[in-house]
Each structure stands twice: as C-alpha cells, then as structure tokens.
Design a protein around this nucleic acid. Structure first.
Lengths: 244, 244
DNA sequence: GCAATAGTGTCTATAAGACACTATCTT
DNA sequence: AAGATAGTGTCTTATAGACACTATTGC
C-alpha cells in the first residue's frame, strides 16, 4: 500500500495514535569539557532519570520546534546557536506508553550561563558527556549518535567556531577541538593549519587583552570566516579501529 | 511543555491526527547513468505526478518500513541493498490533507531489472536523476538532499561498491563514480588510488571474461573489501562554489 | 630568572594529479 | 593494422606531522 492509498482512505480514529516529538542534543564547552544539556524527568516513566530536552511538535516546522524547545529549556535566546537535524528514532517500544517518533536535533552553543531554575527550564543543567549515561528512553543512543556526528563535523566544517564567542584566539579554538575529540592537538601545527584553510577564520586585527593566562605573549583575535566547508579538511589522527 | 508532560496528559482524540511515512530515494546505475526509482501517483493530490516510493509506517521500525516499501515497489528481494536514513521532513502543509511527517531513506542498489508491472510495483520505474523534476509533495527537495548525501558519501566510504555486482572491475567502479559525480575521472590515477586505500577492494584472483568491450586487456576482478571508511578519502575535485 | 605560551621555520613522509608509457585485447 | 583499454612508472606539488626555535608574557 502506497502513501497515497493510505492517506486517501484515512480515518484518524481507525488507527493507533502516534506522536512526534523533537529531542535536542545540545552541546557546549564549559571549563574545557564537552557538556550536554540534560533535564530531570519529574514523571513516569523514567521519573527522576535524566533525559535530553524535548517535546511535542506543534503547528510548526521541525526546526522551529527544536529551537523553541531549546530556548524554553535554557531560558536563553539562541540567536547564534547552530542547529541541525540528526536522525529520527521510531522503534516500537522506545516509549512504553504509545508509538512515539522522535526527531533528534544536534545543537552547538557557545558557553552559556547555567539554565535558570524556576522557569520552564527548572531542572535543566549542563553535564560533561562522559558522565551522561543512564538516560531515559533511548536517549543514550541518541546522545552517542550526536557525539559521533559532532566529532565528524569538526573535521570538514568550521562548526567548531559555533562553540566559541564572537571572537576567539587560535588556542581557544584548539581547546574546543581537544574537548570534542578528547585528545590534545599539537599547538604549532594546529595554528598554521587553521590559518591556511581559506575562510575558516579571519583576523579581527585586535589582540587579546585577556591573553596569556599562565604567561606567554598576547594572542591575536579571530572571528569565524565565510567558509561552509574546510578545504582541506582538518582530520583527526586516524585510529584503525574506526575504519574496519 | 516537555515531552513527559505532554505524554502523560495525552488524549489521542484531543489532538490533530498526524501520520508518519517513509519515502525512499533509491539510486542505481543503469547504462552509465545515475537513476532514481519513481512511482506514478494514481490519486489526488498530485494524481498523475511522479513521486518517490513510500508509505505508512506500520508496527515496525523505521528501517524495516523503508526496506518493506522498497521491496514492494521493486518486486525484488533486496538482500544486498544499502539502506540508510536520510532526513525527516515535517513542514506543516507539505501534504495538503493532514500533518504528515516523512522519514526519508537513501538506498543504493546494484543494477536491477525494470520493476514488474502488474504487481504492487505497477507504475514504478527507474528515471535518470537529471530527468526527475516536478515530483509530488516536497519530493524534489528530498531527492536533491539524497543526491547531495550520496555524492558526499562516495568520497569517504566504500559505498560505491553497493552499486556494483558481487565482483567488478576497477573500470566499472570508476564509471560508478563518474555517473554519481557527473564528471570523468582519470583512469590511471583512479586505478592506483583505489588499490592503495586499505580495505576498499580485494582481488578475487579472477580475470574478467566479459572484459575489454572495445579492446584492451582483460581486467582483473575485485570484490568489496572490509573497510567501512576510506582512509585516505577519495575526494572530488574541489569546486570553490561548494565551499563558501 | 623561570615557566608557559604564541607564532614561525624546517624537514620528512605521504598523497594527489599530470603525463607518459607498455602490454593486451577487439574490430 | 588501428584504436581502445588495463595497468604501471615517474615527476611535481600540496599537505600533515614531528621537531626546533624565537619572542613575549605572568609569576
């Protein structure tokens, strides 16, 4: 039966109800660690367990629903957040009550203040990703898929700049890569590489005033460039296990 | 409102009905051209227009629904087809009758016989992608997204082999790349490159009997190797426009 | 002074692309 | 014989990574 046959003869009450939600894997860097935004569930099932922020899709597009949920949970206007669709999860039984399809989103945010308690965001907080296990529903899997995507995207897109402020130093950018990839990068080679990729960053002409925290010259400041893809890419050191 | 609050107070009949479908961008190479599987719509809306094959998700997972729809439309058992989720489309108004969320899939198939007419697959046929415009719903956009994904994936995964038979020559593999990317590749450099990437292809030890169609030595045969990612990648010649 | 850091120089190994060339096959 | 193709050799250029080094800052 094709979609058209199904729909033309469709009587809504004759079919089991389904719901569509969005869940957001929102990532940021805090104190040099990659963190994800989680909420504490107040109700069954999974009461008291942590979960990704999310909710019902209303009369709006999917992207709009994800952005709305994120703003409601963080209490912050997110003009500069990067938001992209990740994957949709719809296994029967992933929600014990009914058939729920969840469209997962991936968000990259610059360092934000801790979400406001007492608002709709009560119970939302940033958690280092390595401490984010045992989530409700299939959110462990969604988070893992989001991290895979994020790590891969840093290689061939300039999205690392979405974790930084309006201007940043090369060292700050390098610490973002280190936090997401979980490994240190060679400072000198990274510096040259970033500046050699066309459109990755552009100089502001300014020099940091906050620079050299533990000594060292004041670094120059950069902002995100106009490239949408990095050519050549900034590849992770290859681990053979990832390949086979 | 979070997902949990919504769901616990949920009364199905109190909400507008939504439906979830899968639509499949199924690609293959026929006569050296990249083709997509389309069906002719018999009913309103978009009666007589062409559309991607797809249908309602039943009591099954999303991957299973996509595989089932594809087998129903082509009338072929697809043990060796590559199938992956592409993206979900859910703008209000994308279907004029009700709110429909479509989870799009991308499929790579080796060259198949023309689908059987008279079966459930009646009206399904392969169309060269450059002739597939004016599709029903937002399927033009879905197809374009699928082609973008397919072209990108050939760069860093061995998925081109999913378009080939069980064994193939390097020249056949090159023609697959040429068909998907829409540009010729240098035969000598491509040959050396493919053999130098660990796990991309492995020799069968056989030599083609069908070889050298218009002259030339009989080429050796290869099958897909065990790599899941190509290291180093097989990059398209960069066009600056794609980057900014 | 000492330690840490920003930024640059240099060398090596690898990879991509251009081009040439030989051997083998069909017509 | 002619033309096309499989497969290899070689050269040039771009890139990644290792390592070294200078200059500038905080303590």
């Amino acid at each position: 039966m094709g979609e058209e046959e199904f729909l033309s003869g469709y009587d809504p009450s004759a079919y089991p109800a389904v719901a569509v939600t969005v869940d957001v894997v929102a990532l940021t860097i805090r104190d040099g660690r990659l963190c994800v935004l989680l909420v504490e569930r107040g109700e069954q099932p999974f009461a008291g367990r942590r979960a990704l922020p999310g909710g019902f899709v209303k009369e709006e597009g999917l992207d709009a629903a994800a952005l709305r949920e994120l703003e409601e949970e963080t209490g912050v206007s997110l003009a500069r957040v990067h938001l992209e669709q990740l994957k949709t999860y719809g296994n029967p039984g992933r929600d014990p009550r009914m058939r729920v399809f969840s469209v997962a989103y991936l968000a990259f945010a610059p360092s934000l203040p801790e979400p406001e308690a007492g608002t709709d965001a009560s119970g939302a907080y940033w958690v280092p990703v390595e401490e984010a296990a045992g989530l409700a529903f299939d959110h462990d899997v969604i988070l893992a898929d989001g991290l895979d995507r994020a790590r891969a995207k840093l290689e061939y897109t300039p999205l690392a700049t979405a974790f930084a402020g309006d201007d940043f130093t090369i060292a700050e950018l390098r610490q973002i890569y280190a936090a997401v990839w979980g490994e240190e990068l060679h400072a000198g080679n990274f510096h040259r590489k970033v500046l050699s990729v066309p459109g990755f960053v552009e100089s502001t002409g300014e020099t940091s005033t906050r620079g050299g925290e533990r000594g060292g010259p004041k670094p120059k400041l950069y902002r995100a460039g106009d490239a949408r893809l990095l050519h050549p890419a900034l590849l992770r050191p290859t681990r053979e296990d990832d390949v086979r």
